[in-house]
Design a protein around this nucleic acid. Sequence first.
DNA 1: CGACGGCTTGACGCTAATCAATATACGTGG
DNA 2: CCACGTATATTGATTAGCGTCAAGCCGTCG
Lengths: 218, 218
Amino acid sequence: MPALGECRTQFEDSQVSGLRRRLKRGQALFRAGDPFSALYTVRQGFFKTCIVDDAGREQVSGFYMAGDTLGLDGLGMGNHDVAAVALEDSEVRVLPFSMLERAMRENASLLRDLNAELAREIARGQGVMMLLGSLASAERLASFLIGLSQRLVARGYSPSDFHLRMSREEIGSYLGLKLETVSRLFSSFAREGVLEVDKRHVRIVDVRKLERRVRSPA
Amino acid sequence: MPALGECRTQFEDSQVSGLRRRLKRGQALFRAGDPFSALYTVRQGFFKTCIVDDAGREQVSGFYMAGDTLGLDGLGMGNHDVAAVALEDSEVRVLPFSMLERAMRENASLLRDLNAELAREIARGQGVMMLLGSLASAERLASFLIGLSQRLVARGYSPSDFHLRMSREEIGSYLGLKLETVSRLFSSFAREGVLEVDKRHVRIVDVRKLERRVRSPA
DNA sequence: CGACGGCTTGACGCTAATCAATATACGTGG
DNA sequence: CCACGTATATTGATTAGCGTCAAGCCGTCG
């Protein structure tokens, strides 16, 4: 059973809101360009966020699960610049920004939570930059899997045995690789006894080897 | 003559601080791991920020000039996770976080400025992800130059004629390319009449062509 | 049942990395 | 001041890694 992601901030069960919203697989919570009106915390399910550039190219910029905050990208300019799409039937808690602002005026620690969330998002982004700018393909996938595993553990799931909610293409988009490359990497990790892979089901057989893969050009 | 970057927020000339700090070329304002104690706005000069991963690999994650805010990455965890290094003799205004926090309690708009700054940083990061994840080498350099040009205009400099403060290697690190590739791209842009390049002096001859380069695989 | 979407695998090609040589500017100390 | 060593940039030759194109498999849904 899905655990309730850890409560990193007061957002999640704040009195700020009782609003919820359910989304079906494939449905968008918001799209790029939508006016920013609220933040969301994931209660149930799994999301991806996508950036689109002016040339129309699309790229997955992140994956979000229970406890994660969505929508921070809209805080600055009044519009979202990414889209958030549910990868399975999901539920979010809606935190209308107007309410949040009011609540923050009364409760300074909420504000600090918001800053912390924003800063976390910045740090996450820096990790991705590192990944995209400095790592080879196998290192990227290894790093992705380790990160995923760690996040799953934190939520009470198995660290070594899980079901991917996203397609090879989405993983590739996130990692700056093509889907065929991702597929080949899964196969080669399996051949080397690092993973067992069956479509979207992954079992990490040898974490050590996987970790070594993040640093080694081999 | 260097203009005073636009005042995007109240930070810059806020009463929050009169503190300044001067740095020589090559000097670090803060390093990865340093405790977070203050934000900084660039008054004069030019900075790069670098991420370092656990394997010791280093990567340039951004360039900062007059008016830009440095140090936001430290807000979340109490430690900086990037380093900020002056690429020329520079001066920053120091905004000790304790003072900022106090000031924000009294002035809610300061707080909104901080959020806006954080959100801007997030948006910037998303742009870089797009660049690293989806663009070919020539597109990356073109995108970099256009962005640089735009930021220079906003500060009252020439949009088409400027001096790069960073080395080929630093550009490459930022763009996820090797320095030789960057050098070759400069040469090929020059051959095609898009740029004139003499070491670190760049003149954009044909902005249109340069812009076309951002989207075209040609 | 057939069509379609997601995954795997192979063969081939191209882009950018690597390795290497040379050139130029800069700072340092004699 | 010049000589030297060092950092930076350019360019060429070669190679490796990932992308592209293509075929086939499996599971699902209409």
